[in-house]
């Protein structure tokens, strides 16, 4: 931005030149910052105006609902274990959706990534095509596929699983192809020289090199997918999200069930986050001996 240049001359000339340079830069930065802040405020005002309840009215009520939920849960705390038992199968379903989607998506994504890495691709001329495929899979939000599939297949966990798996395949396809690019090609050449076909070259030459990275990204994806599967449940795809929606619609007096679901979901997310971060740590630094 500041394309002010100055010739080397006397010291004072240099000083004024430098000062001028700094001034223009500061001015530009200041202007950009002001523009950005203005955009932020304008955006906030717009969103506020379009919202049913305004921000300043709502801010007082933010804690009303949590307080209500906690209050009711506290009052009926003797019922909570029963609620936990009641909703645990839904939680398992949510996690199963995430796990199955991660498994299927990661396998598809891994193949997609190998097909779209230069130097490894089965059909080198189709690298661009497979890249576009993973771009498109990544771009479609899960909810779009889930809702359409719910219409065709009926409500249940399968639409959510397929939707998450497709998105995962796209995301993993991109991440893994970056990993593949750093893999050494020597094992592949060695295997090629003894007559291995493409899938053998990939399974025996590339996968052992990249497996730790693959696993680590897959675990990260699993964390993300648990959240996605809970959200999709809320729009009708089964699992704990669906139960949460129902529990919310029963309204006051029944929030103890909502509280039980909140706690279950929170505990599951934290547990799997911790497990996966521990496992990823092991993968990057190796087992502590």
């Amino acid at each position: 931005m500041a394309d002010t240049t100055f010739q080397a001359g006397s010291l004072s000339e240099m000083q004024t030149g430098y000062a001028r340079l700094i001034r223009t830069r500061r001015m530009w930065n200041g202007a950009m910052l002001a523009l950005f802040v203005a955009l932020l405020i304008a955006g906030f005002m717009t969103a506020d105006a379009r919202n049913a309840g305004g921000f300043w009215n709502g801010i007082d009520n933010v804690f009303d609902f949590p307080v209500e939920v906690i209050g009711e849960a506290w009052e009926k705390s003797h019922l909570l274990p029963g609620h936990f038992a009641k909703y645990f199968p839904s939680l398992v379903e949510t996690i199963n959706i995430a796990a199955a989607a991660t498994l299927v998506g990661v396998m598809a994504g891994a193949i997609l990534s190998l097909l779209s890495t230069r130097g490894l691709a089965r059909w080198p001329s189709l690298v661009g095509l497979f890249r576009r495929v993973s771009d498109i899979l990544r771009a479609i939000p899960e909810i779009v596929i889930a809702l359409v599939l719910i219409f065709v297949l009926g409500a249940g966990p399968v639409p959510a699983m397929i939707a998450i798996a497709l998105h995962t395949a796209g995301a993993i396809g991109k991440l893994y192809s970056e990993v593949n690019e750093n893999a050494s090609l020597k094992p592949v050449e060695g295997l090629a020289s003894v007559g291995a076909n493409w899938s053998q070259r990939m399974m025996l030459g590339i996968v052992p090199q990249v497996a730790p990275n693959y696993l680590s990204y897959a675990l990260l994806r699993f964390e993300i997918n648990i959240r996605a599967s809970a959200i999709l449940g809320f729009v009708g795809a089964g699992g704990i999200g669906y139960d949460l929606k129902n529990a919310m619609s029963w309204g006051q007096g029944k929030f103890d069930e909502a509280a039980a679901i909140f706690i279950l979901l929170f505990a599951a997310i934290v547990l799997f986050d911790q497990l996966s971060s521990y496992a990823r740590h092991r993968l990057t630094t190796g087992a502590r001996t």
Partner: peptide, 18 residues
Amino acid sequence: DGLIWTVVLSRAFGPGPL
């Protein structure tokens, strides 16, 4: 999770982009 925040916040602020 984002889902829980969404549910809690929609009780306070009503539906909308904010």
